[in-house]
Design a protein around this nucleic acid. Sequence first.
DNA 1: CTGCATGCAAACCGTTTGCATCCCC
DNA 2: GGGGATGCAAACGGTTTGCATGCAG
Lengths: 139, 139
Amino acid sequence: MNAPTPMIRLTTQRQIILEELSKVKTHPTASEVYDMVRKRLPRIGLGTVYRNLELMAENGMIAKLEVGGTQKRFDATTESHYHIRCSCCGKVEDIDIPIIDSLVGTAAKNSSYQIFGHHIEFTGICSECQKNEGNITIQ
Amino acid sequence: MNAPTPMIRLTTQRQIILEELSKVKTHPTASEVYDMVRKRLPRIGLGTVYRNLELMAENGMIAKLEVGGTQKRFDATTESHYHIRCSCCGKVEDIDIPIIDSLVGTAAKNSSYQIFGHHIEFTGICSECQKNEGNITIQ
DNA sequence: CTGCATGCAAACCGTTTGCATCCCC
DNA sequence: GGGGATGCAAACGGTTTGCATGCAG
């Protein structure tokens, strides 16, 4: 059922992308990763970052978050957890509440889909943006 | 707290966009709406469709779904409900399970965010795609 | 030596925007 | 006649892709 073991070479670029991604607790977009990585590898190409994020996600080394907003976001921790997105600055972080395993079962009873996963995303205003009350622009 | 009453004129274009959106139970992307509307208004511009979907969403006439995938999707029913996305064809539909109001409270206790909403998205394979087993390409 | 990985740049796709024209009040 | 709405097309931002070169096995 799972993808065959993939044999992915850990090049310098991949290693550094992985390291930088692991450093942060927010879930950066591809270009945010690009910016972080470029400080250590100034000549790296945007395409390489995209290709490798995609590739590492396919191989389960990292997670690709399909959250709201236009851009894809990436996450070094692959265990399932829920997220919260700041409607003001767009930042995405983890939220520490237990996974509700029963949800998939409940949903399956009410659907013709073959369901294999779920994700909860909360929306709110992060503490920094709360401080800036007044000059808020909701995204 | 809410937006001031908006005074939005119901032009032919807006009316037809709304009608077409109400016809379908899936939640089409802007260009899917464009295609549907163009059958009745062949000269309508893509820009008009985008502008009006956005505008009607701001005014609470329709809902803009910030679901996974790259494209925004729109929904004629504005009451909150959960969605399921087919990993195979990308289609998004409603899933009929009750809203869990307690979730926001639970999340608020575990976060510094001021939380005001949540959304659950299930992933699975829709019944049509299940039939095509074999020539499936997971998105 | 061979093939995968990279850097670079152009292409691509969904969305937004500027502008001249149109239509409704 | 005036202000918003439209059609059209160009611009934009994020992502993907083609290609020549580079590097590791």
